[in-house]
Amino acid sequence: MEHYSRRLLTIVTEAALERELSAEFDALGVRGYTITDARGKGGRGRRRSDWAQESNVRIEIVCDGETADRIANRLRERYYDNYAMILFIQDVSVLRPDKF
């Protein structure tokens, strides 16, 4: 079976940003993403998942390298200073390249 290489971008950030980020992704040409509720602890303290004002989300996007860089740059410029946000990128293989 043939595999194609793509990038998996994972963002963990404040749930308050979910709507705004969805709009950003659409504008940046992202074709799909997955959002899950998350909790944990980081530079801005403990984040709970049971209280909407203080909960986190984890966003996963599979896309090509160029789009991944565009998203990463945009998020770093606009959100890193003021929001709890981390972001990391991994190489992944997909079976249907036209989907991502």
């Binding site: 404040e14 308050a16 940003l17 705004e20 303290g45 909407a52 004002q53 203080e54 959100y79 200073d81 003021n82 929001y83």
Partner: peptide, 22 residues
């Protein structure tokens, strides 16, 4: 307020520390 204001202020005034008023 602890629901409407935190959500709106978080997006409109991101430089404010959200923990303080909450």
């Amino acid at each position: 307020s602890y629901i409407a204001a935190p959500a709106a202020i978080r997006t409109a005034v991101p430089e404010a520390n959200p923990a303080l008023p909450l």
